[in-house]
Amino acid sequence: MQRRVAAALSLLAALTWLAATACACSSRAGGRDDAAAWDRHITLQGRRRSLLSFSGRRCGAVLPPADVLQRVEFSAAAHAAKEAARVASGGSQAPRVFNIPTFVYNVVSNDGTERGFVSDAGLKLQIAEMNKAYATAVTPDGVEGTSAARAKITWNFSLQNITRIKAGDMCDSAVEKTVKAASRKGGRGALNLYITDLSACGLLGYSTWPWELEPKAGKPNALIMDGVVIHFETLPKGTYKPFNMGRTCIHETGHWMGLYHVFQNGCSKGGDQVDDTPYQSAPTEGCPKSRDSCPQPGTDPFWNFMDYTDDKCMKGFTPLQHQRMATFWAQHRGRR
């Protein structure tokens, strides 16, 4: 028993050291123009966006500066190691179920065109796709399983209600603040999902990050702004092919839960901070049969929900992505 506890404590030391060094990571972490060669950023309609998004998946999630990420990863590694020590000393590791109250807002244009409107059935279909996606657990070689069998984690997005709001363009940050301030419901663990027209800012979706809820993050009104915003044509049966199977909402919610893109940091040490997603040098476009862009073991996880592939090519999260989400939930969303 003492040896197992000692091993777990050693793991704590190693993980915290790795977290502190791994995030000397990305020069693109703050959304600055010293980004990777394949990625440059501009400001459009008051929002930072990747030039890559003009030709592929348009994700508006912008990472904070590297020093913030270093603190985030250090804290996450310490939490994971303490949990490992607890289990090693005889603590329970029972399957975990996370029930996430989900509030959906369909924000339609107030100019009389009803631009952005989605039927209740269409919105409910997106939530159903979310629950299917978050029940996946795919191994690094692409073999599918279930979260219960592989990660012992179950996520349940429980639709609470659907609210329709007439407003201006949510690409305008002032409009976004007004809409969210007037509508957001629930605590840290409630997903507030805004479905609207994002074509003006050229995005398919964007999300806040879980660690932004902490006072030390320095984000004013963090709880009010917390949530996920999705372009309405990306929902299942939407018109924006090849991104019209609901995967954008799944992808952005992954950020909301604490996941990076699988190509985070490219082939550099640390990658996306998840050990069972092989290193990947850059985003994937289209739907390749195979891809191997880094010298490290394993082929690119282009099938992962956190890449940029076509919706039809995305099929799962990995067990350790589920574990990472659970860690961030315990740290930032599972408490008041």
Rank of each mutant, 00 (worst) to 15 (best):
C25L: 14
C25A: 15
S26Q: 01
S26H: 04
R28G: 10
R28P: 10
A29L: 06
A29D: 05
G30D: 00
G31F: 12
G31H: 11
R32G: 14
R32I: 13
D33N: 13
D33C: 07
D33Q: 11
D34M: 07
A35D: 11
A35P: 03
A35L: 04
A36Q: 04
A36D: 01
A36K: 14
A37I: 02
D39N: 05
D39S: 02
D39G: 02
D39A: 01
H41S: 09
H41N: 07
H41A: 09
H41M: 14
T43M: 12
L44G: 09
L44I: 11
Q45E: 15
R48H: 06
R48K: 06
R48Q: 04
S50H: 08
L51W: 05
L52C: 09
S53T: 06
S53W: 00
S53V: 04
S55T: 03
S55C: 09
S55Y: 12
R57Y: 13
R57F: 09
R57Q: 11
R58V: 14
R58M: 13
R58P: 02
C59P: 07
G60N: 08
G60Y: 11
G60P: 00
A61M: 13
A61T: 05
V62A: 00
V62E: 02
A66D: 10
D67P: 01
V68L: 02
V68Y: 04
V68R: 07
L69K: 03
Q70L: 06
R71F: 00
F74A: 00
F74Y: 13
S75L: 06
S75A: 15
A76D: 01
H79I: 12
H79V: 08
K82F: 12
E83D: 14
A84T: 07
A84P: 04
A85V: 14
R86T: 03
R86W: 03
V87E: 10
V87A: 13
A88R: 01
A88W: 03
S89K: 14
G91M: 06
G91V: 02
G91R: 00
Q93H: 15
P95V: 13
P95E: 10
R96E: 01
R96I: 12
V97R: 09
V97M: 12
V97P: 11
